[in-house]
C-alpha cells in the first residue's frame, strides 16, 4: 500500500531538485532520506524543539511540520547549504554554542534567519522555538555575538555567507501555505 507519489521540484541549497514523493511527506524526511542531507535533525516531530529548522525562502520553519508539497518552487536552505563557512558555524564551534550538537544545525538556521546584528532580545525571541538542553542558551548567545563581530569584518568574510540566505522579512510567494516558526509560541 505504497502512497501515491507526485513530482515536485524546488531549489535545495542553491541546486534545483526534482523528486517523486507523496505530497504529504514531511519536508524533514525528504531532506534526510530522499536527499541524503542528515544535518537536519528530528527531536520531537511536533514542531516544539526546532532541531529540524531549515529556511524556506529565507524564513525559518520546522521541517517536521511542512508537507513537501508546500515547498514546490521554493528555495530551501539546510545546514549543509551553509557549507561550513557561515560565521555562525565557526562561532558555534569555537565559543560554546554547540555541546551535544543535536540542536545545533537547527539553532544555527534559526539564528541565520534573524538577519545581521540582532539584539539579545531579538535573539531570545527568535530562538524561543529552538530547545537546547545542554547550554542554558548562554553559550549560544555568546556564539551569535562572536559571529556578528566577525561578519562585520572585511568584505572577503562577508562573501562567505551563503548567498541563498535572504533576510527574514523576505516575501514568500504564499505565506499562508507555510508554517513560520512562531518564536514566541512557547513563551509563557
Amino acid at each position: 500500500m505504497k502512497r501515491a507519489q507526485r513530482p515536485i521540484a524546488f531549489t535545495l541549497n542553491g541546486k534545483r531538485v526534482s523528486l517523486r514523493v507523496h505530497p504529504m511527506t514531511r519536508l524533514l524526511d525528504v531532506l534526510r532520506e530522499e536527499c541524503g542531507l542528515t544535518g537536519t535533525k528530528e527531536g520531537c516531530g511536533e514542531g516544539e524543539c526546532g532541531a529540524c529548522t531549515v529556511l524556506v525562502d529565507g524564513q525559518a520553519v520546522n521541517s517536521c511540520l511542512v508537507p513537501v508539497a508546500q515547498v514546490a518552487g521554493a528555495k530551501v536552505v539546510t545546514i549543509e547549504g551553509l557549507k561550513g563557512r557561515h560565521p555562525l558555524q565557526r562561532a558555534f564551534a569555537e565559543h560554546g554554542g554547540a555541546q551535544c550538537g543535536i540542536c545545533t544545525p537547527g539553532m544555527i538556521m534559526a539564528a541565520a534567519a534573524l538577519g545581521p546584528r540582532p539584539t539579545l532580545g531579538q535573539v531570545r525571541t527568535g530562538l524561543a522555538g529552538n530547545i537546547c538542553r545542554c547550554t542554558g542558551y548562554e553559550g549560544i548567545y555568546r556564539a551569535i555575538k562572536k559571529a556578528e563581530s566577525r561578519s562585520k569584518k572585511p568584505e572577503a568574510r562577508r562573501q562567505e555567507t551563503a548567498p541563498t540566505i535572504a533576510p527574514s522579512k523576505a516575501r514568500t510567494p504564499n505565506p499562508e501555505s507555510r508554517i513560520p516558526k512562531a518564536g514566541t509560541q512557547r513563551a509563557r
Partner: peptide, 19 residues
C-alpha cells in the same frame, strides 16, 4: 581550545545514530 567535535557539529556533518 577549539573543541574537538565543534566543527562537525556546527556543519551538520556529525553522524548520530538516526543518520
Amino acid at each position: 581550545v577549539v573543541r574537538k567535535d565543534g566543527a562537525a557539529k556546527a556543519s551538520g556533518r556529525a553522524r548520530y545514530v538516526d543518520d
